[in-house]
Amino acid sequence: MEEFVAQLSAAMTRHAKTGPIENPSQLSGGASQEMWRFSADDNGSSRDFVLRRRHGGVEDDGGLSGTAITMRAEAELIAAVEAKNVPVPRVRAILDKQDGLGAGYVMEALEGETIARKILRDEEFAAARPLLAEQCGAAMAGIHDVAISSLDGLRPLPALEQLAMYREIYDAIDDPHPVFELAFVWLEDNAPKVDDLKLVHGDFRNGNLMIGAEGLRGVLDWELAHLGDPMEDLGWLCVTSWRFGEIDKPVGGFGTLDQLFKGYEDAGGTPVDPARVHYWEVFGTMKWGVICMMQMSAHITGATKSVERAAIGRRASETEIDLLSLLAA
């Protein structure tokens, strides 16, 4: 711990010109990343920062093995979208070998709320809710406007390639669901042909959005960014699972499609194709169902046993009723 703090202090001084770090505490991160929060003197006043690094402080492995991108690519694209006025945490340090901390980066901490149920129900966010769909549309337009030639290490993932990925995962679990089969057939037959691939966030939804009383403060969790159909981001935000019970508000449980599309087009996004947004909503619903099955499978096979993973297997049926509502109403 002492060595870690000393290394992080040195890295912050070297990259971001801050003072020594104080009060480091570990946050609950993902399976593959570690997150730390700490403060440091930044040009005369104390500021909170968040370190995100590979679990255990190892170097990037190229990133293309799974769907997640490298830490460096993640940090670089956050900086690139910030230049397009997308609200994101400001990146202050990208770690390199000299820092001895493994692959990772440090950003300024954002204050706000990410828990969907609070954002959708608490009085504190009542004024923000009617603004969110338009703000999300504007943020997406900024993301999709980044020149992709400036980005390294992002995988092109048009609809049919992603479909093949999820079908492979689903087939490997070997627990056929007629509703998912129906969805796979529909998704194959209706896949949009999109030649002009854009930077796509890949996980733009409640839980990854930092919200304050005035609305959207930051788009977080860029590890699933890729090159793809820009309508993918719009459709994923409309998946019923992200409405957390507010099913009559199709955009994230807080807004209308008109608001989302207006925000997108007013901010300079190309005209929205509602049919493609619908396609990606269907795709996203299938995708979340397959992810539920994956979690269940990790428990059943003993890879990572937990009652939480077991229970999520029984949430795949939620996506089945949503798919039937979309495809066989």
């Binding site: 029984r314 949430r315 049926s317």
Partner: peptide, 13 residues
């Protein structure tokens, strides 16, 4: 499909 999914939801969620 509708009947089986409604049964699943009645049990699951």
């Amino acid at each position: 499909l509708w009947q089986s999914v409604m049964t699943k939801l009645a049990i699951d969620q």
